[in-house]
Amino acid sequence: MSPPQSEERTVPRTHALTEAGLSVVDPLAGDWSCRSGHEAGLRLTDDDAMTAVFVVNDDMAIGLVWALHERGRRVPDEVSVVGMDDIPAARFQQPALTTVVHDFDAVATEGVGLLLEEITSPSTVERVLYEVSPPLVVRESSAAPKAET
């Protein structure tokens, strides 16, 4: 599930799925709210083949988990859910939400540093790509894939 402007969050997901030999499903759009996660979750619950969902923010992941619960799908026994941002409420959900942590302070510090460097010593480089490897905080909403029977 992804809000329309979240390509920087969905491209790595697509790359990782492709690299792992897994099918890539087009993301559902949302507006970053628990409500939109819940609405998307209701649309996804009838897909018995679905075993995991990556959601581009924790609020939408929380809504999705609630929709799965309402429809009788057990998290993480039947469906693993991973959010992104590690909002304070993520650890207090039932089940506690597995999430990707962003160090926004580090990204902002790096960005300001690159900007100051460009101001003081302009280069011919039009764009600088700064990559981060955010950690995954594994909590109760995710489990190892089940073995094929």
Results as ranks from 00 to 15, higher is better:
1 M>I: 13
1 M>Y: 06
1 M>G: 07
2 S>M: 15
4 P>G: 04
5 Q>R: 15
8 E>M: 09
8 E>C: 12
9 R>L: 15
9 R>D: 08
11 V>K: 11
11 V>A: 14
12 P>Q: 12
13 R>P: 03
13 R>Q: 10
17 L>N: 11
18 T>Y: 11
18 T>G: 10
19 E>Y: 08
21 G>Y: 13
22 L>S: 09
23 S>R: 12
23 S>P: 05
24 V>G: 07
28 L>K: 01
29 A>F: 12
29 A>R: 10
29 A>E: 06
30 G>F: 01
32 W>Q: 12
32 W>A: 10
36 S>T: 04
36 S>M: 02
37 G>W: 00
38 H>I: 13
40 A>K: 00
40 A>E: 04
44 L>C: 02
46 D>L: 08
49 A>T: 07
49 A>C: 06
50 M>I: 14
50 M>N: 07
51 T>R: 13
51 T>C: 15
52 A>H: 06
52 A>I: 03
56 V>I: 14
57 N>W: 02
57 N>I: 01
57 N>K: 07
58 D>I: 02
59 D>Q: 10
60 M>S: 08
61 A>R: 07
61 A>W: 04
62 I>D: 08
64 L>H: 01
65 V>P: 02
65 V>N: 00
66 W>G: 08
67 A>G: 07
68 L>N: 01
69 H>M: 06
70 E>R: 08
71 R>N: 14
73 R>Q: 04
74 R>D: 07
75 V>F: 00
75 V>L: 00
76 P>T: 03
77 D>P: 04
77 D>C: 15
79 V>W: 01
79 V>I: 15
79 V>P: 01
83 G>P: 00
83 G>C: 02
83 G>Y: 02
84 M>A: 06
85 D>S: 09
86 D>T: 05
88 P>S: 09
89 A>H: 11
89 A>E: 14
91 R>N: 13
92 F>E: 06
92 F>L: 05
93 Q>R: 14
94 Q>P: 03
95 P>Q: 10
97 L>E: 06
98 T>P: 07
99 T>S: 14
99 T>K: 12
100 V>C: 11
101 V>D: 10
103 D>C: 04
104 F>R: 12
104 F>P: 04
106 A>K: 11
108 A>L: 12
108 A>R: 08
108 A>C: 14
110 E>C: 10
110 E>L: 10
110 E>F: 08
111 G>H: 01
112 V>F: 05
112 V>W: 02
114 L>C: 01
114 L>N: 01
114 L>S: 02
114 L>M: 08
115 L>K: 03
115 L>C: 05
116 L>Y: 05
116 L>E: 06
117 E>R: 10
117 E>P: 00
117 E>T: 03
117 E>A: 15
121 S>E: 09
121 S>A: 15
123 S>C: 00
123 S>H: 04
124 T>H: 15
124 T>I: 10
126 E>L: 05
127 R>H: 08
128 V>Q: 11
132 V>K: 10
133 S>F: 07
135 P>F: 10
137 V>F: 14
137 V>Y: 06
139 R>H: 05
139 R>T: 03
141 S>N: 00
141 S>F: 00
141 S>L: 02
142 S>H: 00
142 S>R: 00
142 S>A: 09
143 A>F: 02
146 K>N: 04
149 T>Q: 07
149 T>D: 11
